[in-house]
Simulated scan of single mutants.
Amino acid sequence: MKRFLAFILAALMLLTLAACGSNGGNTDPQPDNDQNQTDEPSKDDPAKDMEHRVEEVLGYSFTFDGDVDERTVTDGLIAETEEYSLVIYCFDDIDFDTWDNVTDSAFKHVRSTMRAAFRFQPSEQTNSTSSKIENDYGETILKVSGTMEGDQTGEGTMNRQFIAFYYVTDENVVRFCVGVPKDDSSASYAALDAAMDTLIENLKKAA
């Protein structure tokens, strides 16, 4: 009888040890694997705040929204993405008179700059919208959008949408930035418009 009871106790001890071994001897609640995955930052998610890159162009600071490819022409800096192209005019040879005629006085320089930058030389500019903005840095900026008719090298006469902005330096001369979407899609135009707004909002004199 005693041997029988000893056998039963030994069997119970073996069962208890086996149960502990399957849990690694740890009786604490195990963490939920799904919860661990949720708490870790996703490597596939882009950063919420896209990095802005600042370029100083002859006394002014320009902030680009995201990555752009840059190159220079004689009278400006060109920035391009897959959706739009823009050029910053940086000569000081356009005298400021009034805001009412700033686009007319700058048009000759717009033509030559766009020819060098985009192989497109406009002969006529039609403004559809025009608004004067003062940004947080105290810069007064005229934003204009519309269409330009002109000669596109290799394609002949055509109309192209544009967005431009103009500002006046302390020396009372006009500079401008003009951009064109890469195609006629609303997405390309919206991307250009957003990029121009970023430039306008952050335009300031260089430190």
Rank of each mutant, 00 (worst) to 15 (best):
120 F>C: 02
98 T>N: 08
27 T>G: 02
46 P>T: 07
70 E>K: 12
111 R>T: 06
111 R>Y: 00
84 Y>K: 01
39 D>S: 10
59 G>R: 01
57 V>P: 04
86 L>A: 01
61 S>Q: 08
77 L>D: 05
48 K>H: 08
36 N>W: 12
58 L>Q: 14
70 E>G: 06
106 A>Y: 05
115 R>T: 01
130 S>M: 00
130 S>Y: 00
94 I>L: 03
69 D>G: 05
126 T>K: 02
62 F>E: 01
14 L>V: 10
105 S>F: 14
24 G>D: 02
123 S>E: 06
122 P>K: 01
63 T>I: 10
80 E>S: 09
30 Q>N: 03
93 D>G: 12
110 V>W: 08
70 E>Q: 13
58 L>I: 04
35 Q>H: 03
76 G>A: 10
29 P>H: 08
68 V>A: 07
13 M>A: 15
85 S>G: 02
12 L>H: 01
54 V>M: 12
19 A>H: 06
29 P>F: 12
16 T>E: 11
90 C>E: 11
114 M>G: 03
91 F>V: 07
57 V>E: 09
74 T>E: 12
28 D>R: 15
81 T>L: 01
22 S>T: 15
79 A>M: 08
67 D>N: 09
27 T>Y: 13
131 S>R: 14
12 L>G: 04
28 D>C: 13
42 S>E: 14
21 G>H: 09
126 T>G: 00
129 T>V: 11
130 S>L: 00
54 V>W: 02
27 T>E: 09
37 Q>M: 14
53 R>G: 04
81 T>S: 06
63 T>M: 13
26 N>P: 08
58 L>C: 03
75 D>M: 06
